[in-house]
Design a protein around this nucleic acid. Structure first.
Lengths: 351, 351
DNA sequence: CACCCGATTGTGAACGTTCACAACGATTTC
DNA sequence: GAAATCGTTGTGAACGTTCACAATCGGGTG
């Protein structure tokens, strides 16, 4: 019933299997290879009857277009490169997966390259890899500022869109599709202020993260514009360990009525430190995070946080990429997150 | 100084840029295209002087081989597909990145496809995607048993190697490169027993994970062979939330002298529950995990756990793949992890 | 000097698609 | 009834490599 692959006998007598080509399909359907091509590409001016015959032949042979031949003549590989740092943090990995989904939906293939650091050698190697593969465009996942070098290197040869942070301020020439960290942090801070908090501490992310910087700045701005002065900032590096450490220091310094951690993992460490000290959340102190990890719902108590919609973000990114590839101009995109209110935030205890 | 791209004027007068080809290099070097090819492929019988001239021309033109033309004639795409579930758990993402690194080192490109679930539709789509791209082989990251269906579907058309769990027992025909979870769990259990613990509880991973099953079974076997009966098992699903819940239940049931969590995230939840209850680790109870997250070192206290070497694992995986592609037979590989002893485990308090 | 042999280089034909254009038939138009 | 038009189909030449094989150039050898 199925003769999915063609075959030819070698001189040695060995059987060499060969995937069916357009010609095979054409022969079976009784048309020319060009007609097959027309059907495949959905071009008009093919008699429905002919089209059906071709499609039947395609199905019967299990034919698939040869991507190499195709891209040889069209000069388009259909491949998008994703350049990502070698981390497994929630944001970058989620972005990577989301880009894969969006790109595949749009008919692109996704090629991956990771860099251990932002050294020129590593970046050159990755870019060379992409060029060898003739990727059409690159999505750069750049959660650290150092990776902007990558953007510059990549952009010399290929269209780039950066994700994971909004670099427009620093690099106006760069197209970036990212979450609006300012707006997200504002949502959280306002939420806490609206609940009646006046003393809101902050646990910051690492220095080299533009996202961390945006969240910190937004919180500070919001506090200031509410007329609240010089609030407390504790350093962190995204890990729950530093969240825990910050928690200890906060306990030593004396509790504020609320703490805003720049990401959920640090909030987790914080909750852990508070729990260990017998401090009740949100009774004694409210805690909010940022990211909405799948786990965050199940923290004790469930964490108030900001959710990023990676799927939309990635879809927009691919959309921008397509526009650039079509020769058009594209501008950066900023998508705001959604405040998710759970049990970890409540009005301050009235004294 | 640089004339990195060739160009030709269109009839319209527009300038059409074209990447340099072998012929361009050949012309510049004053040789034939075939000689260029020989230099490029490192074939013998090229006069050093000629070789150098060609190499200079290549550098001058910024020439890169056209992958499409190459794979059209060689019938090899040089692409390895990585099929991964749409999760951002530590194991799968680390594996994915590690495979990318190993594959690139071996001269392969890595194409990504993720599946949201293990439905036939999703898997067929992913496999079709790979076939359209003519990937040479597939690395299947299968942390859930359901994904074995994927292995079967993929294997119909392409060479597969599964990672992330050893499926040899269930599917002897499958080639898998994975960590030895049995051995790893044995290391932890023995470590606890050697410290003098006799009452070691276990927090299990999800039902559909073969890794979780292996760790559970190994712990149970080890306990039994030490003459210790019917030990306590608490259910979990890898998340720290269930670790926390298990911690609560353990506190209610009465403390064992040690708890072995099937992964570090659950251990984290456990530590958090213990911390909240004022239970001292390792004074009152020892805790051990599995995975060695980057964070684990910074847990309070630093977590004793088992480290997986993803880099070696991935390198072995690519090695196996190459052997298969070369037409050879390859057998499954199992790599043992390394016990990392930190502060969370200590001898039981003498009563 | 003719011969052969190894090392080096060149020539032309694939590979499987798309593109530009030609050819064909059926209808319509003058 | 010839010409023009439209819809449909076929033909041949790219695309940029690799592969198989032919050609050339030395220098030894009989």
């Amino acid at each position: 019933m199925t003769h999915c692959r063609g075959w030819t006998a070698d001189d040695d007598g060995t059987i060499v299997t060969r995937l069916p080509g357009m010609h095979d399909v054409a022969r079976v359907a009784g048309v020319s290879h060009q007609t097959v091509s027309r059907v495949l590409n959905g071009l008009p001016n093919v008699r429905p009857e002919t089209k059906e015959r071709v499609e039947r032949a395609i199905a019967e042979l299990g034919y698939r277009r040869n991507a190499a031949a195709r891209s040889l003549v069209t000069r388009r590989s259909g491949v998008i490169g994703v350049l990502t740092p070698r981390t497994h943090l929630y944001g970058p990995t989620s972005t990577m997966i989301a880009v894969e989904v969006a790109a595949r939906d749009a008919g692109y293939f996704v090629s991956l390259a990771s860099v251990a650091d932002s050294s020129a050698a590593a970046l050159d190697a990755a870019v060379g890899h992409f060029k060898d593969q003739a990727v059409e465009a690159v999505v750069l996942i750049a959660p650290q500022r150092e990776l902007l070098t990558a953007a510059r290197i990549v952009a010399q040869d290929l269209p780039v869109v950066t994700m994971s942070a909004d670099y427009r301020a620093a690099q106006p020439w760069l197209v970036s599709v990212a979450m609006d960290n300012r707006a997200g942090a504002r949502l959280v801070t306002r939420h806490l202020l609206d609940l009646g908090h006046r003393d809101v501490a902050f646990i910051a992310g690492p220095q080299n993260s533009p996202e961390a910087a945006a969240r910190l700045r937004s919180w500070r701005d919001e506090m200031r514009s509410a007329g609240l002065a010089a609030p407390r900032v504790y350093p962190g590096d995204w890990t729950s360990a530093t969240g825990f450490a910050a928690g200890r220091r906060i306990l030593a310094d004396g509790l504020p009525t609320a703490v805003f951690a720049a990401n959920d993992q640090m909030a987790l460490g914080l909750l852990s430190a508070f729990g260990a000290a017998g401090v009740d959340v949100p009774g004694d102190v409210s805690v909010a995070g940022f990211d909405d990890l799948p786990d965050s719902e199940f923290f004790q108590p469930g964490l108030t946080t900001v959710r990023q919609d990676f799927a939309t973000l990635a879809a927009r990114c691919v959309g921008v990429l397509e526009r650039i590839l079509a020769g058009g101009l594209a501008s950066s995109v900023c998508i705001s997150g959604e405040l998710v209110i759970r049990e970890s935030t409540a009005p301050p205890r009235t004294r």
